[in-house]
């Protein structure tokens, strides 16, 4: 337990300094905040326009789809908040990850703490969370379903962060670039804002087992709307736990392939 506390403390200290750094470059930060809020506005406007010109996605009413899309935006903004593939790969290329990796903490903690993500994107996560709360209130969903829903979203965030971290290391090892990692991320971001069932069974399996955005927010939304039974919560939590453990193991194995190129 002590090891986990130490890792968490180190992460929080690094976050504190990352935020201090954010205030030094507050103009850039403000632009990122605008971008982050814009993503929430685009999600909201997109869904509203779809339901203005048509009856929308079969089986999903306006509020339900709004909740799914904003939940997706919330989770993805949080993932970006924690991880920045470009910076990680850039640091790996020039050997600047070394000073972090030799610290007496877990390798994943070292990378996530030493190379912070886009902190400003917390604005997108919070604005999306506001819409999620509003929709839950409008639909009259009680705490018995909404609390597990939020917990599943948070667990999904953890799973996706660790998966993208592993993909970033894969991207570095095979291509020395972060573009692939970012493309995988964008793929999950664009596909996950809508019900994955409409993409066909092949993609549904892909988005459940390989890139589990399904378990991160699609299936939790289905549980919330009664499209899936409450017992599916256990399946969802189990699947996310497996994703977390396996991506952690893959990351720890692959980071050993990293060879310093300077520093």
């Amino acid at each position: 337990m002590g090891r986990y506390t130490e890792n968490a403390r180190y992460f929080l200290i690094c976050q504190k300094y990352a935020w201090k750094d954010w205030f030094v470059y507050r103009l850039q930060g403000a632009i990122w905040v605008a971008l982050s809020l814009m993503s929430t506005v685009v999600t909201y406007a997109g869904i509203t326009i779809i339901y203005n010109v048509s009856s929308g996605i079969p089986g999903w009413n306006y509020l339900q789809l709004l909740l799914l899309s904003t939940s997706s935006n919330m989770v993805m903004s949080l993932v970006w908040f924690f991880i920045n593939p470009w910076s990680i790969v850039n640091k790996m290329r020039i050997g600047k990850l070394d000073p972090y990796l030799i610290r007496p903490f877990g390798k994943m903690t070292c990378v996530l703490s030493g190379v912070p993500g886009a902190l400003s994107l917390i604005a997108g996560a919070l604005s999306s969370a506001g819409i999620v709360a509003y929709v839950i209130f409008r639909l009259g969903i009680g705490p018995l379903l909404s609390i597990p829903y939020v917990l599943m979203l948070l667990m999904g965030t953890a799973a996706l962060t660790m998966i993208f971290l592993a993909v970033t290391v894969i991207s570095y090892i095979f291509m020395r670039s972060a573009q692939f990692s970012r493309s995988v991320f964008n793929l999950g971001e664009s596909a996950g804002a809508y019900p994955i069932a409409i993409y066909g069974i092949g993609f549904q399996v892909f988005f459940s087992l390989l890139l589990p955005i399904g378990f991160a927010y699609y299936y939790p939304s289905e549980i919330l709307f009664g499209k899936l039974g409450v017992s599916f919560i256990l399946v969802d939590v189990l699947a996310l736990a497996i994703a977390i453990v396996s991506s952690y193991a893959i990351f720890n194995r692959l980071i050993k392939e990293y060879e310093s190129g300077g520093g």
Binding site: I50, S54, S55, G56, I57, P58, Y194, I198, Y199, G200
Partner: peptide, 10 residues
């Protein structure tokens, strides 16, 4: 895919 679903539903 999304727009196909919209057209089919409509």
């Amino acid at each position: 895919f999304i727009w196909n679903a919209v057209y089919i539903s409509e």
